[in-house]
Computed example of a mutant assay.
Amino acid sequence: MYPKNIVPESTPKDYYAALDLGSNSFHLLIGQVSNNKITIIERYSTKVRLGASVVNTGSISDEAMQRGLDCLQEFSEHIRQYPHCQIKVCGTQALRKANNAHYFLVEAEKLGMPVEIIDGQTEARWIYKGVSHALPDNDEKRLVIDIGGGSTEFAFGRQNKLHKAVSLTLGCVTLREKHFANGAITDKAWQSTKKAAKALLQEHLEEITGEFDTVYASSGTAKLLKNVCVENGFSKKHIDRNALKSLQKTLMKLSHTDDIDLPGVKENRRDLLLPGLAILLAIMDILAIKRIIFSKTALREGMLLHMHEKTHRHQQASSALASDV
């Protein structure tokens, strides 16, 4: 990362800014792409909880909307350091579902941040692109899973070639609001959470079934579960079912999510740990997954690559047109 007050020399359209407006957090990634390699310049994440009220009311609350707009304003100030920067702002499940999303879009446009609400399959495709780009160029069949605040994406492929992309309306924020809204940890809440996750997965079993040799999981939920398992000695490096069951046993001894005080768990993620755990355990059970490898790259890296590829195609087309004149 460059010092905040020093911007390296650049050429027009040398920088890309990807903004991922999730149901729980907003993320900004600024980077460069050269020789098909991503160089990360800046990363920012802010917990906005845009989708918290959408679960029960169908609408983004006034408070959440203001938090989101404040965050976009802050992100725009970071981006201004890079005068030749292409920007892409993508809204995901909360903005797909909220009946008042258009109000947010109008206000974001006023900030110079036009938002594109992408569908779940596009989200899954770009997640796969971002994850597979950072993996070895081998012949393994890959399954990439991304558990978000409002949805979970599944992407099957080999190397950089995507074979199938699926998005389900199953997320940590959604399950928290339905089963752990008051923070109380009870066996009833846990069982109902896992039952709800399994029911939705079973309903879409044919869609999420495919061939894979290795399973990768990306983004905040996977990172949280991997970190807490490793830092508490439940696993050495990756996520496996025994580690998650050990974590479940530890958490179920507590009375409230506020009591979760484990290495690897940030205070502002405590309330999402059990819903995320329930979703991942349900997925591993239904798809018979033994081990999951955490991927540091995900949607935002996929967005950067998408922008770069689009720019490159445009430049090639312009060059071809000029040579014909």
Rank of each mutant, 00 (worst) to 15 (best):
L143A: 06
S59G: 00
A317H: 12
I30P: 04
K141W: 08
G51H: 05
A317E: 13
H102W: 04
L135H: 07
T169M: 12
S23C: 04
S219P: 02
N24C: 07
A322I: 11
A317I: 13
T214G: 01
A189S: 15
K88N: 08
V54R: 09
H314G: 02
V131Q: 03
L305A: 09
A17I: 02
D62A: 12
L225M: 07
K178Q: 15
I38A: 04
D62L: 10
H256Q: 11
H256L: 02
F234Q: 06
H312D: 14
T122Q: 15
K110W: 00
A196Y: 01
G130Q: 07
T297M: 10
G210E: 06
K97G: 00
Q66T: 10
E207Y: 04
Q73L: 09
R313N: 14
I118Q: 05
R270M: 06
L143F: 06
Q316P: 05
R270Y: 03
I147P: 03
R241Q: 12
H163Q: 14
T57A: 02
S192M: 11
F75V: 03
L321T: 12
C90A: 13
R96H: 08
K245E: 14
A199Q: 14
G233A: 06
C85A: 12
R176M: 13
K253S: 10
A197I: 03
H308D: 15
A18H: 01
K110G: 05
G302W: 02
V325A: 10
C229Q: 12
N35A: 14
E74M: 09
